[in-house]
Design a binder for these strands. Structure first.
Lengths: 193, 193, 193, 193
DNA sequence: CATGAATGAGCCTTCATTCAT
DNA sequence: AATGAATGAAGGCTCATTCAT
């Protein structure tokens, strides 16, 4: 209800554009508005009308995924076991980044192009911040881990998976292995014995 | 013996080009051969003669750093304490990546443009492989950590530091924090007595 | 009686469009129909329905001013002092061009887009022609000055003022200085006895 | 000797570009660098290398004419009859503007794109300023005429001629008529008696 | 009548690479 | 060897105009 509902034909074009962009992102092709227009069988102007910049389009592609992460973040906030809640949250985040190529660049970007993106990212990071705070209070994580580290670390894991390469089917396993190690390292160091 | 020795003036040009490229890399400017030529006060053709592609130039810029890493790897191989040796090796690698902007792209690239780069990267990874093998045998690291994970993980840490942002002076500290956690997580999980 | 009377809402839109165009002209922004539509809070189509081209809109903006010039021309025709009548007429014309940015392009254009504009321009030039004829007969102006020179000369003065630049408040003074000189030069040269 | 001499082939292209631009200017086509390239049978890049902007090209086209005006201005400075010298200078300037379509826009432009253009324009206007000063001292021109009026007035006359239209052969005559009147009006008004 | 989405020609500009000098 | 002019594909973006809703 934030935006005026689009006319039916315009909505169809909007969908087409986003679908084409989705495909391009999935096949690793950089988003170029002219290119998108050609593939969607639309005029360039149409694409520019809907998305002023490639970044705006990319963020739009990433939005559903961000929304689902936010939803998951809210669920995690309901978990009373602080350490577990944080780990689930982070795991889900990394899984998403590894699965959906649109996510990593949007997440790592220092500035957003759509207000909606900013909203979602803030919602996400504030959930992370709360979860981290609780986990720290519970003595479940290292004291030197701050909320400003969450995004970088998740991006780092996702990037590591990408550098590792390999079939996209295997990526998720690699991601789990890397994340498992990292999370283990982030837990409070118990004195041996 | 790998390359024909250059004429004295050609060698001076080669040096100039690499020095200019070094500066560009340091200031975060993307390497464009035309640009390099202009700044070096040389013709484009001269730059192309020495470096067929921007990547070749970038690899050349990164070479000294790679060489020093290889040297360090060899030293690490002399360390009898397997776990410590591996950790030192990895730490040094991450430090280098965070400190020298030419390193990350060369390290993460799936293919090399210069044979020398391939040589050095192989030397480096095989040192890593050996150190990892010893550490695993010594029971110092998780059994599921393979040598194919080393590069991705180091790149991931470096990338996380970059996403974290902040003054370049602080980067090295952030890198240490992240690496400390990761290394902790990579160690063999001891049963809590 | 030239145009079908508009429906009340259509008339309101027409007014809005012209008002917006007036503002744009005053602030020196080139008239773009899309732009006008946006600022008027109307659809592009509506603007196009009323004004087929930017020029038609511009002429509409200029119309009131042209009408007042025509009225003034008629008054001048009542003046029995031929030389003075012509000079007043020309002065008024230049003042208008310097004061109202919509006028100069319409005046200088070789072709019109609205019949009404053609009507007004013709009325104006024929007044000028008559005034010039009388002044010539009265021996008040150079014999080689023809009615085809009137528009160019007035446009030239207005253009000179524009090139001179400066605050819009000063423009009118500059215009007077330039016009004074020109009119002096157009008067019959008396032999210095 | 201000610029490095061009290579022979580059010089040929430079000439071609300027010649094409000359033609375009003469036929009243707006200068577009891509267009120029196509007509000259050259790559766009070549044109951009020589002329960074359309304005730079236009100024280059206008340069010879400006130079000849400057030369004429220097001759005029040698004339001891102050009023005549000024009038000749202005006449020559208007003739040039009417004859060469590249001149008017360059002359009227508030800012230049080539240093050479600025040089020439300054030389020209300072000649005009001196000639005007002498004429004023000699009591040959109106006291309220300042050197800041020279350019606007000349541009105004040229513009008037353009608005007048007609065959280019007749333009020069029209220009002379207009200028004659203006110069007459700029002379000191003698009391009739 | 009003709307505003769609169109796409057209312009600008950059840059990796080649090749004549 | 060195030079740097030339190339032109490629990408970006705007805007006047049309037409389905």
């Amino acid at each position: 209800m934030t935006t005026t509902p689009l006319r039916k034909d315009a909505a169809r074009n909007w969908d087409r554009i986003v679908a084409v962009a989705r495909d391009l992102v999935d096949e690793g092709t950089p988003l170029q508005l002219n290119d998108v227009a050609r593939r969607a069988g639309l005029g360039v102007g149409t694409v520019y009308r809907h998305f002023a910049t490639p970044e705006a389009l990319l963020e739009t592609v990433a939005t559903p995924c961000l929304e689902s992460l936010v939803a998951h973040g809210e669920e995690a906030l309901a978990d009373t076991e602080a350490g577990r809640a944080l780990e689930r949250f982070l795991t889900r985040t990394v899984e998403a980044q590894v699965t959906d190529a649109s996510l990593a660049p949007v997440t790592a970007a220092p500035a957003d192009f759509l207000p909606r993106t900013t909203e979602l990212k803030q919602a996400l990071w504030s959930a992370g911040e709360i979860l981290l705070g609780r986990a720290r209070e519970a003595g479940a994580v290292r004291a030197d881990l701050t909320s400003a580290d969450l995004v970088p670390l998740m991006c780092g894991v996702a990037y590591a998976v990408q550098v590792h390469g390999g079939a996209s089917a295997d990526r998720i396993d690699v991601a789990h292995r890397y994340l498992t190690a990292l999370l283990q390292g982030l837990r409070t160091t118990r004195p041996d014995s």
